[in-house]
Design a protein around this nucleic acid. Structure first.
Lengths: 117, 117, 117, 117
DNA sequence: GTGGTCTAGACCACC
DNA sequence: GTGGTCTAGACCACC
């Protein structure tokens, strides 16, 4: 995995796991790779992977079963979607609108770009 | 001023000054507040304000006249607009579209929010 | 059984069996459930149940008869009571008093809660 | 500082800082020792001290000012007291009562010990 | 000066 | 096998 330099690696790892869960790669109560496995896969240090998993557990996206590993929380998908939706409507969109006004970009331009996808 | 914890304070200060210039608060060749004044206004360390001004000077948004202070570059508005437009189309918009797809948000929803402004 | 995450599962299992013995569920020389039965009952790994039983055997709370299973030691109740009383007066109570002082909770409040039971 | 072997060092450090705040050693908006200073003071690794501070910040007991250090949250005392009180009434007391019943210890005995302090 | 992050490597309890 | 914790040491942005 190649990492963006502007964001902590462990957060990018957590984001990526969330993306994978949303995409259906790991389903409710599925076991995700062990901390060590994941660290090796992404070529990062164990501690960094640990931090990513701790973050996810704190957010209720995964849960831990002692000696067995981490598993996808049944509500993970909802949890992630909700958190991201909130960020989207509370931060991303308003900030984008603010920029658009300052830059004199109209919403048509956005619709246009969307249509091009 | 309240700062976002994920971005350097000096960059947030620079952004804010750019916003003010775009909004017409400071016009071409206007003198902007002194580093110290600005530091006091925003309750930050003088060094932080210095870095913000240096950043702006490097970007050609302001220029310095020894002993007099910093002034708005005549091309500032253009400069800022151009840089931001590029960022907008190259980073902000694509990232927003990516999130919209993951979250199942349609462009209509965005249009709607825009109309509400 | 739901387990506290701060204490080893096998110790919590052992505690629970001791509770049952104190409560009279298993009496002197009664056979307790087999390791495997108990593991299934509490939904834990067999190894974990084995460790719990070994712990209890080490403490003289149960004894093993080859091929027959584990049985409650005739002195189990006494043994457990004594160990717990000691812990109670040496650790539990002093720590509770310390907390009460820090939190400004008076002994009356404790008496009150006790009366409510 | 000597640490109890049954609890993570970083948690014991956090507990200790909370004790100090309750005791009035650090007051609202006081700066607490820097992560590195505290690590040296207690003879632990920097990372361990970092974990303790992160924990406290997550709990709203301290807050961070970039480049300056950690400061006591104005609500820290309340926050700590409330969290501990809750634990006391929800976990410590019920568990103690349960033990007392199993051991046949009466509340008088507790009152007595309290009086002896 | 301050904290945040990361690596490398170890030990340990636990399952 | 699993995760949790800890050390030692480094680099970095930031104030």
């Amino acid at each position: 995995m190649t990492f963006n330099n502007n964001k902590a690696i462990y957060l990018q790892m957590a984001d990526r796991l969330c993306d994978d869960i949303l995409a259906g790669k790991y389903k409710a109560d599925d076991r995700i790779p062990s901390v060590r496995e994941y660290a090796v896969m992404l070529e990062v240090n164990t501690n960094t992977a640990v931090k990513a998993y701790e973050e996810l557990a704190r957010d209720g996206v995964v849960y831990n079963r002692r000696g067995l590993g981490y598993f996808v929380d049944p509500n993970a998908k909802e949890q992630i979607m909700q958190a991201r939706r909130e960020t989207f409507y509370r931060e991303v969109l308003p900030e984008m609108f603010r920029q658009m006004k300052l830059l004199g970009i109209d919403i048509n331009k956005v619709d246009e770009k969307w249509a091009e996808l």
